[in-house]
Design a protein around this nucleic acid. Sequence first.
DNA 1: CTGTTAGCGCATTCAC
DNA 2: GTGAATGCGCTAACAG
Lengths: 348, 348
Amino acid sequence: MDIRDVAKRAKVSTATVSRTINQVATVDTQLAKRVWKAVAELGYYPNRQARALVSGKSRVFGLIVSEITNPFFPEIVQTFETVAVEHNYEILLTSTIHDPKRMELAVRRMIEGRVDGVAILTFGMEDELLAHLRFRNLPLVFIDVGPKAPRVSNIRVDYAHGIRQAVQHLAAMKHERIGFVTGPLRLRSAAVRRDAFEESMREIGLPVKPEFIVAGDHRLEGGKRALQDLYKLREQPTALLCSNDMTAIGVMRQAFDLGIAIPRDLSVVGFDDIRMADFVIPPLTTVQMSQTELAKLAFDALLREVKRDDPTPDGTEYLLTTQLILRSSTTFPPDLGHARQPSASKRD
Amino acid sequence: MDIRDVAKRAKVSTATVSRTINQVATVDTQLAKRVWKAVAELGYYPNRQARALVSGKSRVFGLIVSEITNPFFPEIVQTFETVAVEHNYEILLTSTIHDPKRMELAVRRMIEGRVDGVAILTFGMEDELLAHLRFRNLPLVFIDVGPKAPRVSNIRVDYAHGIRQAVQHLAAMKHERIGFVTGPLRLRSAAVRRDAFEESMREIGLPVKPEFIVAGDHRLEGGKRALQDLYKLREQPTALLCSNDMTAIGVMRQAFDLGIAIPRDLSVVGFDDIRMADFVIPPLTTVQMSQTELAKLAFDALLREVKRDDPTPDGTEYLLTTQLILRSSTTFPPDLGHARQPSASKRD
DNA sequence: CTGTTAGCGCATTCAC
DNA sequence: GTGAATGCGCTAACAG
């Protein structure tokens, strides 16, 4: 069942079948009709491999993520897939699982699959991925960390904007002792968030107490440990910003075990706005970094680069801003007597 | 940069290069060494499309899921990918998003990609998917709902086992008024769970009150609504089994809004054991249906079928059992005076 | 054990 | 506007 069978049945050449299927405008309407009829009758489906081989374009974009089970990624994968399919692209999904071997493998899979571009949406290890990929002149897109180079796009995330909103939200409710749980600081994105927090605090005239800045790991455990440590201090913060939502959820979990009521005793703010943020109890106030936007930007960047003939020498930049989403995990500090009166209206 | 370049540099024929790369045992050690050297020096990566075209095997398995953003699936996708890569397979991931058009598209993508097999791990709409795929003599694997046919595997899930454990767990703590929140009953898996619940109740001599069996939708909202409805009754259940974890989380969320303490006022049990089940507060006691096991079984079923020359006329069956995971969302019923003493030990 | 050759299914020249 | 012919990169069959 191939293009020749269709040609025979439609009584045309294989070239005409090919042209018809590829929507070449110059095909006679009558012939085209015959071709489509034959295609339908035979249940013909063109062979992607053959097309890729002869055309030199696979119409596949690689998508490298850290791990699909990290709640930050499913939304990205879903959106990327949806957009890709709309443009008749397939996606070659790989996850590094923070494992150098898997990373190498990921790169190999990309190259052997002759993908037309790669979106590298990982946390960490981007450099290693880059090293192998960059010399193939492949369109690449990174979050923040890509080099200024031809065919390399970067999605710059304005972490500071949402974090400033969060700090001001807390300050407006008269919180003064505000803490921060960091991510792994080797990650640029984590360091930037921490810096943005400190900057926002200073901006509004609030003290940044070093003992209120504790280390997390962007995972549940880190959040739990962070809260434990914080509650060993003589004086505790009344509000806590977390470098990501999983950290915040860890904090909430530990608070539960410690008998600390959220938000009454402690206001908590997350970062990312993963789906789960709206499922936890109470629903988490958080800084949204839209995963769907991110995925769309990444795909568009790749697509645009594929279509472009003369790449710009420094690549292209895209911007993704962040913003505060109010839910129910923040309220006035306990000693103000406003307790039990959430500042944020429930969403449902 | 192709196989000929390698052949030239290693001073052998392309056939020898091909054999070397494909680990054919009969290649002379010296020549093989030369080939590998050339491969390394040139940075040669074989072209997947070309290989697929000539060999008639794409080494790609299709994976159709409902939606990646459904918390049940990320673990499956991750495991399936990991296992696939280990066997040098790629995966063509598609999601139906419960949309008939997307479903058709998914099938088309599978066929155009000439996948070597398809794992259909969806909730609903399997029949439609099947109709298009079945006549291609493709290895297929389903959960429960596949037909007995050549090259079709089924993973039979023993839903009843874990549900019986759950009911007995509650009964052992002297719960007598136990309710159940169903899933969408058009789904076989949801109907089976409901039936298993009723059966288990009868088995142990507990009454199945019709008003305690309420309809959910396997989503957060359904769980919330279910609890609302239940609390309009004159008499409420002291424990609630839910058809899946999202439902249970919805119940917990609504309980929070209603001021019902879990597990003190109401014990809650979920089903699936998605990751989130261990993140919510309190951690959810649930019936585990291992997603990693499921993914492995699905992949193995496909792989085995690909290797098999003479398919069995009725396909093959695999079994996946379920079992209760004790966490902290269940305890003694409130009127027994054991309140606040969780039955399950915390896991961390 | 190795090399030569044919052809996988298709898009794309180039004549007509 | 259409068809015949070429070749994408590779594996498999065959001859040596």
